[in-house]
Design a protein around this nucleic acid. Structure first.
Lengths: 141, 141
DNA sequence: TGAAACCCTGTAGTATAGTACAGGGTGTAT
DNA sequence: ATACACCCTGTACTATACTACAGGGTTTCA
């Protein structure tokens, strides 16, 4: 039975990260400095498990550690000037919407590719390149 | 008027990357070694502009350079064993679908946050943390 | 023909996000 | 009381993706 207190290694195991990463996040300010035992061992709680899972999830969405720090600041309530929060969240939303559109169009081109691939045995005109080759070309004039 | 041939700096400008990046991509194999002038200057064409735009777009979707190299190999037709192509494209699709789901759920929580924020002047219970804190916790038994 | 603008190579530096020791201390179980 | 698992700090190393020189050659255009 756990005494409700976790050592670094236990936290690492529960959150699915490794020990060094926990120390690294502490250095970077994503985790605050924990209470220590008299011997100097870090003592964590379930809160840190959640926080690490939060970080892991946000990372899987493509957020950088500094963006995650902002999100955590919102979540912690340490940013509570409403305008600031809205600005951050709205910027995030813009970015997310852009990513969603790109991903959706790539998804359909890839789906087409896979379908075509299922029918023909070699690819001669691939739709991916046409799709991804479109873009704002800086014309030099 | 262009003679249809681009120097490194011109290509860079047109594709919206910088010169060093072009050389870097050549080193990494994302661009093949171009024809040179007698003086050793690289000579590019419109194809390389498209290729760089392709790379830029793929990067904005979160693909790494090595993944982009795979995509380019498909696009180039240099991978044309149908099974290989399908495997790569399907793996990509899985990944994209996962990212889409994560982004969609984050989008809705962020949208809620922004809405709440528009109504209240400070945030006391933020939905982001609940949303992103959910996840597979490795239970130690 | 000479100077400005551009290109070349090679190497080193930056930022991000960890990962891997070395050398030493702590906790606990037998 | 001692061995083993585990923790500590600090530092160095890795990978990815560039970015920035230094020192020198090339093109172009007046």
């Amino acid at each position: 039975m756990s005494r409700n207190v976790l050592k670094t290694g236990e936290l690492a195991k529960m959150a699915g990260v490794n020990k060094e990463t926990i120390r690294f996040y502490e250095q970077k300010g994503l985790l605050s400095e924990p209470v220590r035992t008299s011997g100097g061992y870090r003592q964590y709680t379930q809160n840190e498990v959640s926080r690490l899972i939060f970080i892991r999830n946000a990372k899987s969405l493509g957020f950088s550690l500094s963006e995650i720090m902002e999100l955590l600041a919102i979540a912690d309530g340490s940013i509570d000037r409403c305008g600031d929060v809205r600005k951050i969240a709205e910027d995030k939303l813009d970015h997310i919407n852009t990513q969603l559109h790109h991903l959706q169009s790539l998804k359909s081109t890839l789906t087409n590719l896979v379908d075509q691939c299922a029918q023909t045995s070699s690819i001669h005109h691939c739709p991916i390149i046409e799709s991804l080759s479109k873009g704002t070309q800086q014309d030099e004039n």
